[in-house]
Simulated scan of single mutants.
Amino acid sequence: MSAIETKLAELGVALHDAPAPAANYVPYVVSGNMVYVSGQISADVNGLITGKLGADLDVDAGADAAKACAISLLAQLKAACGGDIDRLVRVVKLVGFVNSTADFTDQPKVINGASDFMVAALGDAGRHARSAVSAASLPLGVAVEIEAIFQIK
């Protein structure tokens, strides 16, 4: 087991197989030492995590949805690295989209669910630049979608 996967196991997380794309795109692109991962939607073992922040879900539920996206991002990274996730140098950037009402303003607190998880799992290599924005709706009604840029060796 890799060092990163060992740390994930300590956190009670096992990486699942990387989700297949749902449309005409690729799940990631490797260019030089950078990996660009397509947006991962909020889902867990029970299926899609749906709802609108500010109406159906509170900030804690949104943060859990964002953490689920982060786990899928790492699963895609592992696939991009041919199974060797320890090739990760750092998380460069996360861009998070939050399905929220017009008056909801805690998008950063929701995306903290992903950011906090990346730092807990990866230490300083998990610290990253970030955007957290509202969306009137997201695919399939999911609560959160996050894309990422990673540096690898």
Rank of each mutant, 00 (worst) to 15 (best):
L48V: 10
L74M: 15
V37E: 03
G39F: 07
A55Q: 13
K7W: 00
N33C: 06
P19E: 06
A65I: 09
M118F: 15
H16M: 10
I149P: 00
A14I: 06
V119Y: 13
I71P: 03
Q76T: 15
E10C: 01
D56I: 02
F97Y: 15
A148C: 07
L94E: 04
E10P: 03
L138A: 12
L53P: 01
S31I: 10
T6N: 09
V91L: 15
A22N: 14
R127H: 11
G47R: 00
D103M: 03
A9R: 12
L57K: 06
P27E: 14
S42W: 04
L11R: 05
V91Q: 08
N33M: 05
G96D: 10
P27H: 12
L77A: 05
V95C: 08
E10M: 08
V37G: 05
D44T: 06
Q40T: 09
K78G: 02
R87F: 09
A23C: 13
D17W: 00
S100H: 00
D64P: 01
A132G: 06
Y36A: 07
V95H: 14
Y28I: 06
A102F: 05
G126P: 13
L57Y: 00
S38I: 07
C81F: 06
D86V: 08
Y25H: 13
K93W: 02
L77I: 07
V59C: 03
S137L: 02
V29S: 07
A148W: 04
I85R: 01
A55E: 13
P27A: 12
I146E: 00
L88V: 01
R90W: 10
D60N: 14
L122A: 13
K52S: 08
Q107C: 14
V29K: 15
P21S: 14
G32S: 01
A80N: 02
S137E: 11
D60E: 15
N112S: 15
I146T: 01
T50P: 00
L74P: 09
V119G: 12
K93D: 12
D64N: 13
G47I: 03
A43Q: 12
D60F: 11
R90C: 15
A63Y: 04
L140P: 00
V110Q: 05
T105I: 11
G113F: 02
H16E: 14
L53D: 01
